[in-house]
């Protein structure tokens, strides 16, 4: 802190302000105002809370040439590290840009410059610890406030004198604003029946990821497999889990008694919570867990949600076998698959 309690003491080393003269009172010759600016306009009185006679031209090792020299060398060393690291970057690039070596060299190049700059400012440069006025940016005086009010009102009055035009402009602006939103509607189609349907349908074969149709014998007891409607791999709502429950007793509403093939049941893989694939199957408990938000479904109980945020059961896909013995759907899902939406109902 170089604020001087007594402005007479020490004073400023700036020419033109020595001998106890106060900066701000007496501008340096040829300058419009004090070169060491304290946020005080030339026509403003000196505020009480800005000490006079502040001297910010000092720096840390000003009176210690030995330590100043060491500081200089230290800064130079930092920058030489950067210099060498920069050369290293070129070398590493040419030899294949190994990632760890590159990272270290880039880091050193940056850090050397940065640390050097900060040491320079701290040890060898002036401008520390100054108290200045916040100036007049806080608020304007009443006169100016009236002036702006008057300027604005002077323009507004003749506008307000024709309320019809004024209101019409508002209405037109509003209607045009809505019209101008129509280009956005071209971004996508209207929500359509795709919301409610998938590529499954009567007689559509269930195929594996690589397009192979399946027979019930392909799925061992406790086996689980993700299947897709043949030709409908791109349908993100269609992925379905085939699970072979074997002899495990599973409950299914009476209306769906012919929706399974023996112990093989098919449920939507798309979580009814947020649409992730609910694919973690615990064979012991016959539960499906969605890895995204831990919704848990009990396969033995019609895939009812038993834990987590999922609000609904996973929809069941009715399946049977076709004349060649391959697993096919009896129909599409009978309710919308996946997370809820407003019109789902």
């Amino acid at each position: 802190m170089t604020i001087l309690d007594d402005p007479g003491q020490g004073g400023s080393r700036e020419p033109g302000a020595g001998g106890g003269a106060e900066p701000g009172d007496q501008p340096t010759e040829g300058l419009a105002f004090d070169p060491r600016h304290f946020g005080i306009a030339p026509d403003e009185p000196w505020p009480d809370d800005v000490p006079r006679g502040q001297d910010d031209s000092h720096w840390r090792f000003e009176h210690d040439p030995g330590r100043a020299r060491i500081a200089e060398l230290r800064i130079a060393a930092c920058w030489i590290v950067s210099l060498l690291a920069s050369i290293g970057i070129a070398v590493v690039y040419v030899t294949g840009a190994q990632n760890q070596a590159s990272g270290i060299l880039w880091a050193l190049a940056f850090l050397g410059i940065g640390v050097g700059l900060i040491l320079w400012a701290r040890d060898l440069l002036p401008g520390h610890d100054v108290i200045a006025s916040r100036g007049r940016h806080d608020a304007s005086d009443e006169g100016n406030r009236w002036a702006v009010a008057e300027s604005f009102a002077r323009g507004l009055e003749p506008i307000a004198r024709r309320p019809f035009l004024f209101k019409l402009l508002g209405a037109v602006g509003g209607v045009f604003g809505i019209a101008a939103l129509f280009p956005l509607a071209s971004l996508g189609p209207r929500p359509d029946r795709n919301l409610y349907h998938t590529k499954w349908g009567r007689g559509v074969r269930a195929v594996t990821e690589d397009g192979r149709p399946l027979r019930p014998s392909d799925l061992p007891v406790n086996g689980i497999l993700t299947v897709f409607p043949e030709g409908g791999m791109e349908d993100a709502l269609a992925p379905t889990l085939l699970i072979n429950l074997g002899d495990a007793p599973f409950e299914i509403p009476p209306s769906r008694t012919n929706w399974n093939i023996g112990g093989i049941v098919a449920f939507s893989k798309i979580c009814t919570h947020a649409g992730c694939p609910a694919g973690l199957y615990n064979v012991q408990t016959h539960q499906l867990v969605c890895p995204c938000h831990q919704s848990t479904f009990d396969v033995l109980e019609d895939c009812k949600p038993v834990f987590g945020p999922a609000p609904r059961s996973l929809p069941q896909l009715p399946i049977t076998t076709d004349t060649e013995g391959y697993i096919v759907a009896r129909s599409d899902y009978t309710q919308p698959v996946g997370p809820g939406f407003w019109n789902r109902g």
Partner: peptide, 14 residues
């Protein structure tokens, strides 16, 4: 109404 700290030039800039 006052502010105490370092000058932008050269302290703060550096």
């Amino acid at each position: 109404t006052n502010i105490r700290g370092s000058r932008v030039w050269p302290q703060y800039a550096m």
